[in-house]
Write a protein that binds this DNA or RNA. Structure first.
Lengths: 111, 111
DNA sequence: CATTGTTCTATCGGTAACCGAGAGAACGAC
DNA sequence: GTCGTTCTCTCGGTTACCGATAGAACAATG
């Protein structure tokens, strides 16, 4: 009921997750924190959004998983980008730039 | 089944429609053509997406409608931005810039 | 006149992503 | 032993978008 509407940039979550994993393997909770932190809280996603994305990425072979210990000595499932994931990231980034540019062109440009 | 996925910039359609109407009153079909043309075909929406948006905008008082004749002598329902619609456009544009910048920061910036 | 193409409005059911709410396990700290 | 924090995961609901579809009105063609 609050004004927040994440629908605006829907579909970017997958790309952002792939991007964070491009920095190195990370667990779900850490990915979420990373996105929120890097965006200065502009972007945030509930875990009810995150885990379905991670499961989908794995089922599509874009990431692999392994259980390990975090710095805080907790069990966590680490997600690691596969070569396919890297390619997917590049493709989604290119597509994002293309659409973003088109939107900006309309929004900023002369009629 | 084709590769096209508009989900990437979901929620922008409303903003784009408001923006096109900021150029002057226009009918549904023309709005659609305008968006597609201005974006060099990068952005396109089916009419099954467009009309629900227009109906919503009207019900929220962001546009008014009036029947008139087009240059081609066809009956068409022209949509005109209200002052509330103008304000909404500004707000959505600001929000878009904020989110777009956050996404770009993560995608382009250093980890 | 009949037929076809173009312009234009509109609806419906399905799909898929996101979200809030919630359950639960494991570890550290007090 | 209780609490807070970290971390995984599921479920049902909502909602935007889309493909398919229907159809009216006018122009142009034969």
């Amino acid at each position: 009921m609050t004004e927040s509407r994440n629908d605006f940039i829907r579909g970017t979550l997958e790309m952002l997750v792939l991007r964070v994993l491009d920095f190195g393997p990370m667990h779900g909770w850490g990915i979420s924190e990373r996105i929120q932190s890097l965006s200065s809280d502009a972007l945030s996603f509930s875990q009810g959004s995150l885990y379905p994305v991670l499961a989908r990425l794995q089922s599509e072979g874009l990431v692999t998983t392994e259980w390990a210990r975090t710095e805080n000595n907790r069990r966590a499932k680490y997600y690691r980008l596969t070569p396919q994931g890297e390619r997917k990231l590049l493709a989604e980034h290119a597509n994002w730039r293309r659409l973003r540019t088109a939107v900006d062109w309309i929004m900023e440009g002369a009629g």
